[in-house]
Design a binder for these strands. Structure first.
Lengths: 192, 192
DNA sequence: AATTTATATTGACCACGGTCATTTTTATTG
DNA sequence: CAATAAAAATGACCGTGGTCAATATAAATT
């Protein structure tokens, strides 16, 4: 028969996450080692994998939490009314996404739900992002010939594109937000 | 002093690539193991890494060659004159990009040049893709208020977006090309 | 031909993510 | 309070990518 989760379990998992967050804070995501997490938490390696399917599952949680935090703030802020203010409102989210190449790649890899009804923390955040942006668009002075949802998908596509180029030596000269503004003006603003 | 490359070197490298291609043909990219490549080529493991910086460098070559092949064909074909025909012309390229999740992720990861003057085979192909599409756009009946280059960047961004959703359980229902057509009609076609 | 130097190859070794049979701890039952 | 069953934790072990000092081979020099 199935029994309730033991308190011990929650304690252990919390400690693993806590240690991982501390390690990330000091050395970044890419340098995180499972060995360091378990030794820091004082448990055996196998314990880690009893709590997380794999290393990426922990990463998803950590990164997802950071993304969610930035979405919380964006949702709480005044809805932007222009491309410029929209980009500003998304700045913390985008900044975090591009804070490390490793993080950016991880987010892209987990941006979609692998299986229906098993949507991970990162995919969840990207959905929230879309819904949030679509909401903003509905109340703004943007083109009306296509749906706000479609416009929001475009915002996401162009944001990813601009971030990709940010990581590219050949295009790093131009600022990310400048490029994104260029894209979004062409995408969202109604023809004069 | 620096000496010319020995013929032995070229032979070995060619054999490594040949074996790798055969293995990929039978088992796909994701399942490729360096051990299998070297044992198949009859060399030691260290030799592999004398020829390729890491496993990804081999993957870049293999995938880059496939992409280049599809670009060759696209360049040779009749320039498309509409969104529909443009999507059709890019079909082989897009098909290969989405043939395996592993391949898609690899391409995204290496889509930009890490360092100037060290542009890899995949980044090279994506640049060719952009130039090709921009050329097509210049001779077509698309919106004229923004440059063909910018329009082409958008095509790339939307293609990637549509492919991402293709890999996502929640959105797999809608066909990739249908979705891309939706995007590109909204992006490229001049308002009526 | 013998010696030297640059290049190519080797394979034992390491790092690190991940597995699993075994043991320990916790909760339940008679 | 045993005896038992379920859940949690353990750590030796594996797979695989990647390293490097040592060795072998090829070309250049005397």
């Amino acid at each position: 028969m199935t029994r309730p989760v033991q308190e011990r379990t929650l304690k252990t998992r919390a400690r693993l996450i806590e240690v991982a967050q501390a390690l990330v804070a000091s050395g970044g995501y890419e340098a995180l080692r499972v060995e360091d997490v378990v030794s820091g938490a004082g448990v055996a390696k196998g314990t880690f994998f009893a709590h997380f399917k794999d290393k990426d599952a922990l990463m998803e949680r950590l990164v997802g939490a950071e993304l969610a935090d930035r979405l919380d703030r964006a949702e709480a802020s005044e809805p932007p009314v222009s491309v410029e203010t929209l980009i500003a409102a998304l700045r913390p989210f985008h900044r975090f996404m591009t804070s490390e190449r490793y993080v950016f790649d991880l987010i892209l890899r987990y941006s979609g739900a692998a299986a229906i009804a098993e949507i991970g923390p990162i995919a969840q955040c990207l959905q929230r992002y879309s819904v949030l942006v679509a909401g903003w668009i509905e109340t703004g002075a943007y083109r009306r010939d296509i749906s706000a949802d479609l416009l929001a998908e475009g915002v996401q596509a162009f944001s990813v594109q601009a971030m990709s180029l940010q990581f590219c030596a050949l295009h790093r000269a131009q600022d990310f937000e400048e490029r994104l503004a260029l894209y979004l003006d062409a995408w969202m603003v109604p023809a004069a």
